[in-house]
Design a protein around this nucleic acid. Sequence first.
DNA 1: AATCAGGACTACC
DNA 2: GGTAGTCCTGATT
Length: 312
Amino acid sequence: MGCTAHSPLYITHLHTDARKTWLDDMEDIKPPRSLLGLPEFSWPGACLPCYDKLAVDENPWVLRMTGAHDSSALSRTPEPSPPATSQAPAEIEGQVEDSSLEQVQTMVVGEVLKDIDTACKLLNIAPDPLDWSCVHVQKWLLWTEHLYRLPHVSTMFRELTGKDLCSMTEADFKQHSSQHGDMLYAHLDIWRSTAAMKERCPTGDSKSADDDSWSDVMSNYPSQPIHLWQFLRDLLLKPHNYSRCIRWLNKEKGIFKIEDSAHVARLWGIRKNRPAMNYDKLSRSIRQYYKKGIIRKPDVSRRLVYQFVNPV
DNA sequence: AATCAGGACTACC
DNA sequence: GGTAGTCCTGATT
């Protein structure tokens, strides 16, 4: 909790029936649908600073993560309440207890950390953008492109290290990509903020939310090669992030379906630095697992459906 | 047309 | 030697 007490997250205003609105608005967040390149991130009200203007009207739950490079952001900074609208009567705001806010903050911070953990693991990059090489920057950009369904933007940031990227202003980003520069800048801002926050709370308060601890990620980096089956399993274990491209049909039996074969193949290609990866090749690798008893076709064979022989 | 099965070869650790 | 990437033929959905 000590960490979240200093969290750079804070709520700008609340909705009457927060839980309902939360769910109702899930489909309306665009672009993008999540904080961290995770398209189905389940915190629709958690918006990147630059998206406030896009989302605040539709999403009364607005959590703002300010830049951690701005040291003032690291103390809880209550923002002046926005003009009360029909969606957010002032009386409701007064009813929300601090503990609820703290709970929400803790949950959001936990989700952010978990999602960065996952992305780092799947991408094989460090959590702190300052540590990124040009290759890491490109991987992060490619990943973000694919998960946000953005047009090609990575080519506009060639030859840039993480340090270069972090020294760029929002205007610089827009100069590189007039259409999506602000999104990328905001997305990067989340990563930087999280890395800075982590530095302030290195003991692991914030990792209490999950087993995938930050130290795991750190010790994973630079990590050893990952097996395809591990990669697929990692995607499957983050259903709220990746269920659009791969999901369990029967988790107990380890049966899963690849919903978007091209997308999964592309993600695998990014992870392995194989730009020419496609589903034809990925599926060949999966079939190599048949003999090894790692993955098989289910008893009733279906297209794009496979089964882990030893379910998790 | 996309997916599936598996042989053959290659590259890399 | 193990794992995966690549290319391939032919079958199946």
